[in-house]
Design a protein around this nucleic acid. Structure first.
Lengths: 226, 226
DNA sequence: GTCTATAAATTGATAGAC
DNA sequence: GTCTATCAATTTATAGAC
């Protein structure tokens, strides 16, 4: 899921370097824009091709099918710098919410595609399923570490993962971020994505600490960090 | 937003009562199913018509256009019994999450359509924008009432609505519910929608009570109710 | 009132020119 | 390697039969 499957031709022989860097990437950017505006199903190859002044078939030369194009667009994200693991991951999420408010296009891309992916036979279904599973684990690790600095996520202790309070908190934090995006995209003045994300993270950590779940961790410590 | 715009012919003259109650409603149910499975844009009138054994044009006779059909499907929800206002509204949300887990079709319908509605020129955009605005107000009223039983939501006191902690909590609770639906639809065993919704509602109420926001309200009171 | 036949436009994708 | 001409299938919607 992390390795870019498609080879990125560092400098295609017939390409004048500096004149046109990479046609594939131009198409990728155009496709990301159009998918963000229209969703995957409603977007047409013609829309994407028109952005670049070519025909739909021109796009399909570089990517075998519309589905392949979507896959490549999603894989783009994995190119970015890796997020911090552990305690700092929660702050990173709040930062992400803040940055998302400055780039509606990218925000809409993932908001629309993630929800669209639950439709029958959607090509991005596996990608998002795995992505959420991974993120839930990462966020849980961050929550556990904040409750009890240095601790690791406890192994299976009888109850299923989904029922573990720290895992529930992780699912909740991710869910808030996603849900806020839709509300914000519909009405940017109605919600502050970063502020609400921070509020929920703080509230959950405080709550779990008070419930007697984490071994120690005073309420104050958890309160101030996110 | 509450009144059904389309007239519901109580008993069309030429209709044998009891044999076929209402062709419109049959189409509406079929459309809801297909929109839930495919989303609005990807769904075709042919898919809907096939369910009933007729042609696409047969569907368009009852509803002037595909968009009108979507509008009618969304308006269906307003027919249900009205949810409780005030304090009990939070419990109602948890109940809703639990019921949603038993009807994936309806859950998917709103999860897919709400996110799809943020795409450019989507016909359901206004509907969802208004829906969220209304829900945020209702949920905030419930949160306020739980923090300080009997109290009402304070009028504008300088800070914008979106920045008021109780309003932020309301947006958060709705966002969690929406985000959880996507995670759950992708992987039903990974999350318990009702449990996590309750967790977040409790955590937020406790947190706001502790922050010194609500006038009084002991932590214990808020803890036990949701 | 209920619906089929039909049209006009658009879709993703193949085959092949340059 | 880059892309256009072209195709077969599917789209929403109109006009009109019953």
């Amino acid at each position: 899921m992390s390795e870019p499957a498609q080879q990125t031709p560092a400098a295609t022989p017939g390409n004048t370097p500096g004149k046109r860097v990479n046609r594939r990437e131009e198409i990728l950017r155009a496709a990301a824009d159009v998918f963000a505006s229209q969703g995957f199903h409603n977007a047409s190859l013609a829309d994407i091709a028109a952005t670049l002044g070519i025909t739909p078939a021109g796009v399909l030369h570089h990517f075998g099918s519309k589905t392949d194009l979507l896959t490549a667009v999603l894989e783009l994200r994995d190119s970015a710098d890796p997020p911090p693991k552990g305690r700092r991951f929660l702050d990173h999420l709040v930062d992400t919410a803040e940055r998302n408010a400055a780039r509606p296009g990218t925000t809409r891309l993932y908001a629309v595609l993630s929800a669209e992916s639950v439709t029958e036979g959607h090509p991005a279904q596996d990608w998002f399923r795995h992505r959420y599973a991974e993120l839930r684990a990462d966020v849980e690790a961050a929550v556990v570490d904040r409750l009890d600095p240095g601790a690791a996520v406890p192994a299976a202790d009888g109850v299923p993962e989904a029922a573990r309070p720290t895992r529930e908190a992780a699912a909740a934090i991710l869910a808030v971020m996603d849900g806020l995006q839709v509300q914000w995209l519909l009405d940017p003045d109605a919600v502050d994505m970063a502020a609400v994300t921070r509020l929920v993270a703080d509230a959950l950590v405080t709550h779990l600490a008070g419930t007697g779940d984490g071994p120690a961790a005073g309420p104050g410590a958890a309160d101030r960090t996110a």
